[in-house]
Structure formats: structure tokens, C-alpha cells
Design a binder for these strands. Structure first.
Lengths: 215, 215, 215, 215
DNA sequence: GCCTAACCGAGACGGTACGTCACGTCTTTTA
DNA sequence: TAAAAGACGTGACGTACCGTCTCGGTTAGGC
């Protein structure tokens, strides 16, 4: 799960001068710097990245097979780790997941970065698959596991698929962070504090067993 | 709402030979044909589009300022019209909206096309704004109006913002059609018949006034 | 020999609106004006000429089949008429011819024009042929006739071809006006007053019969 | 005096892969081949030259700033070297110079080529200056030096400028090689053997001191 | 005093070439 | 052998003209 040499050295492991790890880092950080500086993704050519990182083009191609592969490593580096769950209640854990999505959707510097690479990643099936496998799916599995446990505890209705339930919680926040947030709204008015709680409470209301509903 | 000349003639309205509408159509349909034939979006150069449509490059640039602008019109042309609402009940109307999203998410020819252009549109703030203004926002307004009326009728709780409610319904389906559908799943197993009803019923359960809940 | 309609009207002589002579003039004068203003010949596109003359492109193509044909008429219009010969002596007549060449080679406005179109004319065999037939050859014939008469009078040696003699006089001046004058020298120091007399006198010295030489 | 990199590398002398001389040659020879095959100069686009030489356009622009600069090197490559002078007499040396001009004016393959590029070069002041500096002026200086020595020896009159004298010899041959030869005459009848001697003898007659004239 | 054919300006049209840029590969020197 | 530098063939970019073709609107005869 480390910063992969996506392009492994073809022959033996150690002959001649070894690849410099410093170079690896300076390339990825160079890309991040450019994105943070507001350079549109479309203007991120390999040549420009090499120039920025003070590196030869061949040095990039030796490690990644192209721009897409490189971006996977950039996203992986920038992606925030999964949130620590409070564990105090189902509701609190769900809120924690949504809250992390909301944070990422805010107009911070590092998120502006993420969002633009994200768009690029999304427009390439190959990248999207990789991103899904490495980042999205593991997190989704955690969320679904949480809900399954709650169903077994009787905290949630058992007659609805846990995967669908998960989408009921995640989908609305996604709606705002990915679909609307990046462009239409400029201020963060669309992602106010308390939004996570509002969503979780409203959806949870319909998913609890009848017996345990708010009176 | 007609096929716009995104690049309006700078001068008066009618001097010189008028632009041919047939050419306009053949360009847009040329793009659709290429996409349907499985040409990757990255290989859709203006030169190739012009060649396919049997048209000079200048003729394209006369109408659109670049590939992106052109894609807006392609999406707009392919975008299905808003669904006709049955009007029999709030639930049925909501299902109708979601059902349309589900249909679009299925792996039909025309939708495979749409989804890749859609990704491209999404990766450009300018395009995304335009798409939002022209396509998304009007539809969203209809949906919200529907919910507001239901709140006034007492069919829905009045203590939750109607816009948020709308996201609670739309978000989960979006999750599956846009986020997961294009790559992870190949068969349409993720968008089964009955999905719309499942979502609407589950979410509606938490949004009805306490008095009118399922016992 | 008038300003030709190089592109004659195909059918009968007079049906419909006749072509405007004013338009004809304004096109040719437009070209001259552009050249006098120092616009490089290479930048003289048909589109620009039409714009300058306030004329549609088709109006130009109706008269000339292309840029080259048009330039013939421009040169013809600008070419100075043959000089009037004093007739006082062979020497004076020869000087008159050379003096005209010298004048044209000076850096006057109208000659800057001529020289640049001349260069263009020269680079196209078709144009060069036309220019030769219309302008150069008739003048050359006059010069040769002059020399032939002088041979009959005994003023010139009879053992040298009159056409070659003509080149002996014309060539040196051409050397300076066409080959060197346009670029290398900037001031007109290379074409000083008295140059024509110098050339004629020097060459004439070798062409007179021995009996009549300067002692 | 080697095949210049008209577009010098901006940086230091030896960094990165050096420019291939083979490519340089194949471009210039490609142009020559096209011209020899009778392709009109106007159809010699950079794209076509690149295609013929099996070379990318950028590789051409890396060396020359445009078609014109390239043509200088083509002309320079094809230009015959200065003739070897017999040194037996002033007359023989002058004949040698003229004879070379006459040879070049004949309808040989390589000269048909040269003459059309030559016309192009002539139509651009910048090119013409360059051509003059590199090719014409050095040769002219040799010729003038020859005449100056003859003046000092008393073989030529001292009262006529040596530069003017030079034009008296060169001009007439130029008249036939450059002005008339390319188009009007087709066969080489205008440049017969013996022409050089005829011109030199006729002009020399007027330039010798009176004492040494043909009786 | 109409009729109508040809003119006129404007500018769209399918092409071709321009000169620039980035692609991914390759060949140098230097370390 | 890696690394920087940059040349290489390829091909798309967006612009400018080419010569042809519609447009709406004149402008002169011939009836």
C-alpha cells in the first residue's frame, strides 16, 4: 500500500544506480503544488510536470506508464484517512462518516486539489476502477459492516438491504459535495455545519424498526 | 431552448450566407455516432469529428469555441425530457422521477454515450455550470416544488428543508447511476426493477408526519 | 491594352447589371495603396485586398482568376511609359533609356511598389511570361531597332549582334537596379546621377568602329 | 561556412541529444528532389517537405524559422563553387567567371531547381540580404580585385571605377541568365558557346587604355 | 414603369497549410 | 545504470486563406 513503483524494474532487483525516492516524492508534490496554485487540470502536461519537478520526462515514464497512473498515486497520497469512529452510537458513527465527506467538500486548499483530480479520475474508466478498488470500496465495506451489525442488534430494520441503506446515507451528501458543490455554489453555504446530523437523523427515522421510532 | 449557436454571429442577424442547420445536426450526430462506436473520449479530436461529419474545422469553431462547448450541445440533445408525472400520489410522482434516472443509468447504447460525455462535462467548471443551468436546475426546481406542495398539504414533515428532502430522494439513485454504475458493475444488477420504489418508500417513511406513518 | 476583364462574361454581351468600372479601379488602387504602405507582398491575401477595397471576394474572382492575374494589371497600371527619346544622337537616346531604368530604381514610393510586385511576378513563370510579352519585349524591340539603325549608319560596329549590344548597355544598369539596389544599399548612392552617361560612354567606346574612336 | 544551424540551440553547446546531421541533409535533399521532380515552388509547403523527408514539422522549425530560411541553405548547398581561374591573362580570367554564370544558366537539372528557389529568395529582402552576404558579395569582391590589379598593371583604364567595370562584364550575362533565360527562351540558344568570349572581348575593347587598343 | 438577369456586399462552406505544443521514445553527457 | 536534457516522428491544436457557394439587396437594360 506504499507509494507504488507502478512500473517495476524489468530485470533483477539491484543492479546499477538505484532509483531515487526523493525524485518520486518531488514529482508527486510538484503535481499537488501545481493544482493548489489553481492550474487547470487540462494544462497539466507531463512536460510541465517534469519542468516543475526539475526532472527529465524519461524519469517519470520510468515509474508510471502515463498521466493517469501518476494521478492515482497523487490521489492516494492526498486522500484523507478513514475517520476514527466514536463508537458511542450508530448515529454518531454515521455522522462521523458523513462529516468527513463534508469536510472534504469544503473549499479548503487541499480539497480543491482533490476535487479536480477526482474529476479527471472519474472521466477515465481505468482510473475510476483503480480509485474504486483502492479507496472507495474498502471504506464502503466498513460502512456496510457497521449497518449490518446494527441490523443484527435490532437497531435497524432487517427488511432493507444494508447496501441500499448505505446509499441512503451517503448519497445525499454526495449530491452536495460532488454534484453541486464544486461549481454552483461558491461559498460553503450549501454544506453548513449540522448538515451531517440532519441527514442522518432524517434517514434514520425511516430505517429504525417501528418499535423504536421517535414518538 | 433550441440548438443554440453558442458562438453568435458578431454582426447583425442576417448578412451573408446563413449558417446551415443541417451542418449543425451532422456535427452533433457525428459525435454521437463516434461515441456509440466505442471511440474513447480522449480520441475525439476536433479534427476527427470534422472528418466524420464531412465538415471543415472552421465550421465547428464558427459555432462552438472548443470541444467542451460542443459537448454541452451533444449532452443537451441526448438528454431525455423530464418524465410525465402520473399525479396519482406524491409517492408515484417521486418514483417517476427516480425511475427516469434509473432508465438513464442502464447500459443502453445512448446512455453509454451520455455517461462518457457527461464525465467530460463534469471535469470542467465552466461546462458544468452551463449544464447545471440548462438541464439540472430546472428539473430540480420541479422536484422541489412537488415536495413543497406536499409539505403544505401535510403529507410531509414541515421541519425539514424541502431542498434537503429532495437530495435524500435523488442522492441514493445518483450514487448508483453516476458513481458506481459506469465501471464497477457491468451487468445492470445494481439498478434492478423496483429500486426506485424501494428508495422512495424507505426515505418517505422518515419524512412523513408522525401521525401518518406506517403503523 | 485597356484594363482587361481577364475573366470575360461568359454569355451574351449585355444582359443584367453591367460590371462596375469603379469597383475595378478601387481594387487595383487598393493593392497599390497596401504596397505603398509597406505591406509585404506575402501578406497580400485576396481576403485582405477585398476588405481594403470594401468589396466581396467573388467580385474579385469575377474579374481575375487569381492573385497572379490581378497583379499583372497592377503592374501594367503602374509601369511608367517608355521614355521620349531626344533624338539628338545615339548616345543621348541610349542615355535616355538607361536614365528611365535608373529613375525607376530609385527609392521613390511608386518604385517601391513596382519592385515588390516585380519580385512576385518574377517568381511565377506564367506572370513573368505575361509581363515580358506586355512590357519588356516591346521596349527591348525599340532599343534594338535604335541600335540596328546605328549599325546601318556606321555609328556602331557591324560585327556584333545588335541584341547582344543591347544587353551590354542594359545589363549593367539592371545589375544595379534589380540585383543590388533593392536591398543591399539603402541610400541611392549606388545609382548616382551621371551613372547612365558613364555606362553608355564606357560601353560605346568598345562598340564604335575603330575609325570613329576617341583618340 | 558549414551547413548552419540557422536556429542555434539557445542553451549551452552540448546538453541532451544532439541534432542529427543526417536529418539536416535529408531535409535539404528532399527539397531539391521535389524541385527536380517539377513540383511548383508554390506547392512546396513545410508539411510536404517534412513528409517527403520523413521528418516531423517541428524538426524543421527547430533548425529554420520558416520556409525562407530553409531555402537559403538549399541555395547555398546547390550553388557551384567559384571557378578556378586560369591566370593566363585578364581576358581568360574574366571569361572564366562569365563562363560559370553561363553554365549555371543552362537548363541543367540542378539549375532549373536553383532558378525557382532563387526567385523566391529574391522576393524577400531579408533572404536576399543573407544570400548576398554569403554568396554574391564574396564572389564580387574577387572579381573587383582582379580588375583593380589590372588597373595597376596598366591593362585597364584607370579613370573608370572598378566596381562599375565589373558590372559592365557581369551585367550582360546576368541579363540573359536571370532575366530572359528562365521563361522566354526554352532551348539554350540564348546562351550559346562563345557568348562569354564575345561579351568580354566587346567590353574589354572600351576599357583598355587607348595605347593598347586593337588597331 | 415593370421585369429580370447579372451584379454587389457579406459571409458560410470544405479544404489545406500554418506554426505551436504535447505525446511517448530515443540518444547524448554526466554522475 | 540512473538522471537531466533535449532531439525525434506523430498528430491535434486554433487560425488564416483558398476558391466556391448561397443569401438579401441593388441596378441597369429590354419590354
Amino acid at each position: 500500500m506504499s507509494l507504488a513503483d507502478s512500473q517495476p524494474r524489468p530485470d533483477g532487483p539491484t543492479r546499477g544506480r538505484p532509483r531515487s525516492e526523493a525524485v518520486e516524492r518531488s514529482i508527486i508534490e510538484g503535481v499537488m503544488k501545481l493544482l493548489e496554485d489553481g492550474v487547470p487540470l487540462a494544462e497539466l502536461s507531463i512536460e510541465r510536470i517534469a519542468r516543475t519537478a526539475g526532472v527529465g520526462k524519461a524519469t517519470i515514464y520510468r515509474r508510471w506508464s502515463g498521466k493517469e497512473e501518476l494521478f492515482i498515486d497523487v490521489v492516494r497520497t492526498a486522500e484523507p484517512p478513514d475517520p476514527e469512529l466514536p463508537g458511542t452510537s450508530l448515529r454518531d458513527d454515521l455522522v462521523a462518516f458523513l462529516e468527513q465527506m463534508r469536510q472534504r467538500g469544503l473549499m479548503t486548499r487541499s480539497s480543491a486539489l482533490l476535487r479536480s483530480v477526482f474529476a479527471q479520475v472519474k472521466s477515465s474508466p481505468k482510473l475510476w476502477d483503480a480509485y474504486h478498488t483502492i479507496v472507495v470500496e474498502p471504506r464502503r465495506r466498513k460502512q456496510v459492516a457497521l449497518l449490518l451489525r446494527a441490523q443484527e442488534n435490532g437497531e435497524l430494520r432487517a427488511d432493507i438491504d444494508a447496501e441500499l441503506m448505505n446509499d441512503l446515507f451517503i448519497g445525499p451528501m454526495l449530491m452536495r459535495t460532488v454534484m453541486r458543490a464544486d461549481t454552483v455554489m461558491r461559498a460553503d453555504g450549501d454544506l453548513p455545519e449540522g448538515l451531517s446530523e440532519q441527514i442522518v437523523d432524517a434517514v434514520l427515522e425511516g430505517l429504525r424498526p417501528v418499535s423504536s421510532r421517535t414518538p
